[in-house]
């Protein structure tokens, strides 16, 4: 008979025994050694039926195809750009994947220069972690003005909230334009004093993401800072 040795939503450390017997299956962040399931990294236990999974709490961004990220141009090549994407590896954008048609002899710095930030989406990640990105989507663009902050990429889902509830609450309260990249890079654009409120709010979410009652606390924080009444959108 299988037996669970840890509770759901607790923190575990590498090598800890999570379950005994063959009734449970090791998923992300766990492995099987004979009849035991063990943790292969530090994180939060998440049990889904028979699957035991460990959600990461720290570590760099793991690039995944389909993610929308914010990237910084680090180098210009013969036929494209390379980007720093706040991950262990850098990403590549080919001229063919740029927004507009670029002639062969064009000066690529006219489109994206070194140090520019863009929003882009990951097309493919190879086994050797070569990352291809694309701009072929009307919502992807170069970012001008505003400010950039970096957060722990594992906290991004909390900053966005259920169906974007958290980020839209911050947007409405501060009248700032916010773009949250899956890689933990956030672009904020608005009135300078409001931008600072957004930065402080995001830092607070990052710090308290794993403690329940987050939305309510963020709401009171924003109300205090902006002197506005905020209503929380109900998400089913």
């Amino acid at each position: 008979m299988g037996k669970l040795l840890v509770e759901d939503k607790t923190i575990v450390t590498p090598g800890e025994e999570l379950a005994e017997g063959m009734d449970f299956l090791p998923a992300e962040g766990t492995f099987r050694d004979k009849d035991k399931i063990l943790a292969s990294r530090m994180g939060l236990i998440h049990i889904e039926g028979r699957l035991i999974k460990i959600l990461r709490l720290s570590g760099r961004y793991i690039p995944k195809a389909g993610d929308t990220i914010i990237a910084k141009v680090t180098n210009i090549l013969m036929s494209g750009w390379t980007f720093d994407i706040n991950s262990s590896y850098s990403a590549m954008l080919s001229v063919k994947e740029a927004k507009e048609f670029i002639r062969r002899d064009a000066d690529l710095t006219k489109y994206y220069d070194i140090g520019d930030y863009i929003t882009t989406s990951i097309v493919k990640v190879t086994s050797q972690k070569l990352i291809d990105v694309s701009m072929k989507n009307p919502s992807l663009r170069k970012l001008t003005g505003g400010r950039i902050i970096n957060v722990n990429p594992n906290k991004v889902p909390r900053i966005i909230g259920k169906r974007g509830s958290m980020v839209s609450m911050i947007k409405n309260a501060t009248e700032c334009n916010i773009i949250v990249g899956q890689n933990g890079v956030i672009w904020i654009y608005g009135q300078p004093e409001n931008e600072i409120i957004v930065v402080n709010t995001i830092k607070m979410i990052e710090k308290e993401a794993h403690i329940s009652g987050l939305t309510e606390r963020i709401k009171t924080f924003l109300e205090k800072k902006t002197n506005k009444k905020i209503s929380i959108e109900k998400v089913e």
Partner: peptide, 11 residues
Amino acid sequence: LADAGIPMKDM
């Protein structure tokens, strides 16, 4: 290393 979220079999 554990704090950095590096995959580890044990400590």
